[in-house]
Design a protein around this nucleic acid. Structure first.
Lengths: 142, 142
DNA sequence: CAAGATTAAATCGTACACGATACATATGTC
DNA sequence: GACATATGTATCGTGTACGATTTAATCTTG
């Protein structure tokens, strides 16, 4: 039978490693006052500002029930601004403020720090990422 | 520079795939009235009953602040029982009830269902699991 | 063997995740 | 062009995660 204890389960490897990765980010993000999901959201905006909640949700694979409070917290901190789309007032566009944009420079060292902590080279990291994404795609299609 | 948007980040691949995996479990666990972390906890107990909170935390990589409420919810549902260790009263041992043990049979089909949904064979799954665990170990050591 | 240090759980506060639902704006149909 | 339907966000309730702290029991060391 294929029944295994948690340490041998693929799902648990994903689960525990994803948490471990967040812990690795934590001390790097703490000086910026950001949580890991907040950092992902800002990263998305640094690569494409003024996007709708829906578009951000599709990129980050999060629904509005998670994204809205996340966005509001960063708005309270003055890192971004929400504005109704004038053409379609159902949509809300998320704009970086100058403060939010400035934070990108303070975060610029983080990717290299993380890469260093993995102790792996770029090729291996990209290969592992693609294998994990291939699994996600299979689960999406199933 | 190594700065990438979220879809290209290894950490995001882990993050989104771990969530996707939980969503894959959800419809299988719903009939049992279990969440995914609750299922992991029970799986650990099915492989070794009467363990302490600390021992379960080491296996599941969770602290008491997460584990205690998780255990209490399953206790409320009558799936397990908490008992102070008589030799060392600081420790709490978690015992499966008959109901909790019986649930193992109802969950026995789940691993195969998940394997099928991944569309991958056992060897590939084990290989991917080990690569992910190798990353976790590197992060643990860093 | 008593005072301080250590350990095991539990508690508290904050921030995700996410199902279910509500609500407002758009869109399609007649 | 009123009306049913669909779409985009927001809200609410429950259940994790986890840092910081608390409480109780055990261990250490003089």
């Amino acid at each position: 039978m294929s029944t295994l204890p948690p340490p041998d389960m693929l799902c648990f490897a994903l689960y525990s490693t994803a948490h471990r990765m967040q812990q690795t980010y934590k001390p790097l993000l703490a000086p910026l006052g950001l949580t890991y999901p907040q950092y992902l959201l800002l990263s998305a905006l640094w690569f494409g500002d003024a996007r709708t909640v829906g578009a951000l949700g599709r990129e980050l694979q999060l629904e509005s029930n998670t994204l809205t409070p996340l966005i509001k917290r960063l708005e309270t901190r003055g890192l971004l601004r929400r504005e109704r789309d004038t053409a379609d007032e159902r949509q809300v566009r998320v704009h970086l403020t100058d403060t939010g944009r400035a934070l990108q420079a303070d975060a610029a060292h983080i990717p290299d720090c993380i890469t260093r902590e993995t102790g792996m080279d770029m090729d291996d990291l990209a290969r592992l990422r693609d294998e994990i994404l291939a699994l996600r795609d299979r689960l999406d299609r199933a």
